[in-house]
């Protein structure tokens, strides 16, 4: 038998303070390397601005950039919620009916395999320049991981728990709400966490085409005027948004599903 050494448990692995401090250190080191590179190789700001340039750029027009962030955030959240509202019931139906699964699954796969950038101009043609094509793009990006993980979760109910509910004469509805859906929640949340990052990407892609607002629009415009620093400021705001949304979901999961935390 091969010997596997267990990872040592120390303050660094177990403390909640370390759980917050370590990611910050990681980020700080990465930014430090970036900064170092721009100084050591004296890179022109229009090629790669230093972190400081980016911060300065942000504070030149914080109101404008935050407003654009707000626009993108709203599109992201709307599309994400729509994907949940549509995706979860579809996943439930797929699990309930083999016929439906066979009918719909290849279709889902096909839609998922289409590069979303290719649809962006079409969405504009169909839905105009308003918010809708952006929300729909986010929906398209989020839909698949949410459906897959929900379906997977709904199928993972242990047989002995199903049998328990049967032996208690539970109705189909009770079995669904009291057992299957609850049991699937951790996996559904995994899908949500994958989807939320994709949602942010979706909103940016859609803002590249036929938009007049949003961080994607800012990035596209800055490219046209070779304002690399502005593009970096917008990209930084995007990543902050992405990280914040992700951790909001993690917190929500902690709060809603305390029973699922122990599995590590």
């Amino acid at each position: 038998m091969t010997r596997r050494t267990m990872p040592k448990r120390t303050w660094l692995t177990d403390s909640p303070v370390a759980a917050v401090v370590l990611p910050i250190i990681g980020l700080a080191v990465a930014i430090g390397l970036w900064w170092g590179a721009t100084v050591v190789f004296s890179i022109e700001p229009y090629l790669l601005p230093s972190p400081w340039d980016v911060v300065v750029k942000f504070f030149e027009q914080p109101g404008y950039l935050l407003q654009e962030t707000g626009t993108s955030l709203l599109e992201t959240i709307e599309g994400f919620l729509l994907a949940i509202v549509i995706g979860v019931p579809i996943a439930v139906l797929i699990v309930r009916s083999v016929v439906l699964e066979r009918l719909v699954y290849p279709l889902l796969l096909m839609v998922n395999s289409i590069p979303k950038v290719a649809i962006a101009p079409l969405l504009v043609i169909w839905m105009g320049f308003g918010q809708w094509p952006k929300v729909v793009m986010v929906l398209l990006m989020c839909f698949f991981p949410i459906v897959i993980s929900t379906a997977q979760g709904m199928k993972s109910t242990p047989t002995e728990l199903v049998e328990l509910m049967r032996s208690l004469n539970a109705s189909r509805v009770q079995e669904f709400f009291k057992l299957r859906l609850r049991y699937a929640m951790p996996q559904i949340f995994t899908g949500f966490k994958v989807a939320i990052s994709l949602a942010v990407i979706g909103s940016v892609i859609s803002e590249f085409v036929g938009a007049t607002k949003g961080l994607g629009y800012v990035i596209q415009q800055s490219g046209a005027s070779a304002d690399t620093t502005l593009a970096f400021a917008a990209i930084s705001l995007l990543s902050v948004m992405s990280i914040a949304l992700f951790y909001a979901l993690v917190l929500l999961e902690h709060w809603l599903l305390p029973w699922a935390q122990e599995k590590r």
């Binding site: 242990p158 002995e160 728990l161 049998e163 328990l164 049967r166 032996s167 057992l179 609850r182």
Partner: peptide
């Protein structure tokens, strides 16, 4: 399944 008959499984089968 009857109300006056209960079933106990090999595994605890508790809802986590």
């Amino acid at each position: 399944p009857r109300r006056d008959v209960s079933f106990m499984f090999q595994r605890p089968a508790l809802l986590p």
